[in-house]
Write a protein that binds this DNA or RNA. Structure first.
Length: 221
DNA sequence: CATGGGATTGACT
DNA sequence: GTCAATCCCATGC
């Protein structure tokens, strides 16, 4: 499968984010299917670009199709795909992958770098390898040095959907871990997929009709 | 120049 | 459920 061209990313983040679900990230011999993304745009305060162009957000404002990798909580590297036209600060955060190839290498990197929850045999469950934005960069060996590199040419590459991921059912909800712009439901995940990060989006109809819950539909695009 | 706050994770109560 | 780790950088004095 060919990598996605820069033109794929040169659209609204709200179109690119759901379209990336089902696409494949490959790096250093390991790969996984994207099962969860979030959209960020300079016009809303949860986006790093909201404060304007700074040394940190230089890549974010750059041309589409580049990797924006930054350090989160002083600990983790988070992978984003820069979107929209050059000069606009917008990106899609890759939040979770379903491991595809190189699971042994992923386990090795996760055990070495972090301290993932292990089973009785000291192994890491497949669903714990890439079920979070910090976990997946660690499992795939993606670091801050990949910031600004091309997602079409590598070293980190994203290719299109495989046959079985043609037209996936996508669930939409509020973004995770942010304190501002919580009314924007810009998180997109593959419905019912086991490799999505926490909190897992609800699947199916509400169990308690009277319970207060967030609407699945966003207030605006 | 000092300070405070994260687009998180994993351990612990 | 709560909380520390850890560091870049935006902000304010």
């Amino acid at each position: 499968m060919a990598t996605l061209p820069p033109e794929f990313y040169a659209r609204s983040v709200l179109d690119v984010a759901p379209d990336l679900v089902g696409c494949v990230v490959t790096h250093a011999g390991v790969s996984g299917v994207i099962v969860e993304t979030e959209a960020y745009h300079e016009t809303e305060p949860a986006c790093h670009a909201f404060a304007g162009l700074t040394p940190r957000t230089q890549t974010l404002f750059g041309p589409p199709g580049q990797a924006y990798v930054y350090r989160s909580y002083g600990v983790h590297a988070l992978l984003n795909a820069v979107c929209e036209r050059d000069g606009v600060g917008a990106a899609v955060l890759i939040r979770a992958l379903q491991p595809l190839t190189g699971l042994a290498e992923m386990r090795s990197r996760r055990l070495r770098g972090g301290r993932p929850r292990a089973d009785a045999n000291g192994g890491v469950q497949a669903r714990d390898l890439c079920s979070g934005p910090g976990k997946l960069t660690q499992a795939m060996g993606i670091w801050l040095s990949d910031n600004g590199t091309s997602l079409s040419r590598g070293p980190v590459r994203i290719s299109g959907r495989a046959r079985e991921w043609r037209d996936p059912e996508i669930v939409r909800g509020p973004r995770v871990g942010i304190t501002s712009a919580v009314d924007l439901h810009w998180r997109f995940s593959a419905a019912g997929n086991e490799y999505v990060s926490r909190p897992r989006p609800p699947i199916g109809p509400p169990r308690r009709p009277g319970a207060r819950r967030a609407s699945a539909a966003g207030p605006r695009l």
